[in-house]
Design a protein around this nucleic acid. Structure first.
Length: 289
DNA sequence: CGACCATCCTGACCGC
DNA sequence: TGCGGTCAGGATGGTC
């Protein structure tokens, strides 16, 4: 199973792109279909024309957003969505069924954006000063908060902001304007480690519990990165790079029906926010109604 | 502004 | 074998 890209998976992709694309110049760029460029007002043909022959100067990331800094002070923002992949491979390989963008690279190589479910996409935007630090970020992600692995991440401020809201802790963890990079899988893992139920309200939790949960989110993402971040093939950048982590290390996500690794109680899966939450009913009791 | 839900999408899977 | 229904979930844009 291919994991949904959250922070560690996107960071693996960023590192792969940094190793194989930064410092090189695109040749022709081809986009397929309208949807990949739906955030680009002038459409895919215009976007492809603007990307052709641009040099890639750097690869940045905040949370689940990835971007390539191009010459001319612009950034190509790439979001992998639910199923996006970036591949660096031979131009001779047949085009993947769901390849939505192909960038020619020197040496008969290509950078390809492949995305089965097309929740992801590309945008070309200017870089602006970051509200949270002294770097530059793409103009379309200024509403995205720093992620827990960034220097700009201000944990006490995030805890205060969460406690001002009246919302479920898990909802807050998934809110990319409060803290970015956390998706359903790492949210469940962080909540299990604390342990705390994700439906507890943020304004009724201590600052310490919220801080610990954020610490655990950072910890579990670092662990995933440690296992997946060095495994990409020299000529193949793939979001599957972190998948080894999923085979062995999950304590909560997908563990329903199995004994809790801390107390042995059977783990449960519950519906939450039109998705699923996984938790231990003993270690993470539901809040009283 | 905050809270929260519907919506987008494709393939795997299940029951009949 | 086929077919319809269900599920997976990140981000946005809408309502209240």
């Amino acid at each position: 199973m291919q994991p949904v890209p959250e922070l560690p998976e996107v960071e693996v992709v960023r590192r792969g792109v940094a190793a194989h694309v930064v410092g090189r110049r695109f040749g022709a760029v081809e986009l397929y279909g309208e949807r990949v460029a739906r955030r680009h007002e002038s459409g895919p043909a215009d976007l492809a024309a603007r990307l052709a022959q641009r040099e890639v100067l750097a690869a940045g990331r905040r949370g689940k957003y990835l971007w390539l800094v191009l010459d001319g002070d612009e950034a190509l923002v790439i979001h992998l969505g639910m199923s996006g992949q970036l591949l660096v491979e031979s131009a001779e390989l047949p085009r993947e069924k769901h390849a939505h963008a192909i960038f020619e690279l020197p040496g008969e190589m290509q950078l390809r954006f492949v995305d089965q479910r097309t929740f992801g996409g590309l945008q070309l935007v200017e870089l602006v000063a970051d509200r949270f630090g002294d770097s530059m970020v793409p103009a379309v992600i200024t509403h995205i908060a720093p992620d827990p692995l960034e220097d700009a991440f201000d944990q006490p401020a995030v805890v205060r902001a969460m406690r001002k809201r009246h919302t479920a802790l898990k909802r807050a963890l998934l809110d990319q304007s409060l803290v970015s990079g956390i998706g359903n899988i790492y949210a469940d893992e962080a909540l299990w480690r604390t342990p705390v139920h994700g439906e507890r309200f943020t304004d009724r939790l201590t600052a310490r519990i919220i801080a610990e949960t954020l610490d655990h989110a950072a910890e579990v993402m670092r662990e995933a990165l440690g296992q997946g971040g060095t495994s990409f093939d020299a000529l193949y950048v793939n979001v599957n790079g972190a998948s080894g982590y999923f085979d062995r290390s999950l304590n909560a996500y997908g563990q329903q029906g199995r004994p809790c690794r801390r107390c042995g109680t059977l783990m449960v899966r519950e519906a939450f926010m039109n998705r699923s939450s996984h938790s231990c009913p003993h270690c993470q009791p539901r809040p009283r109604r």
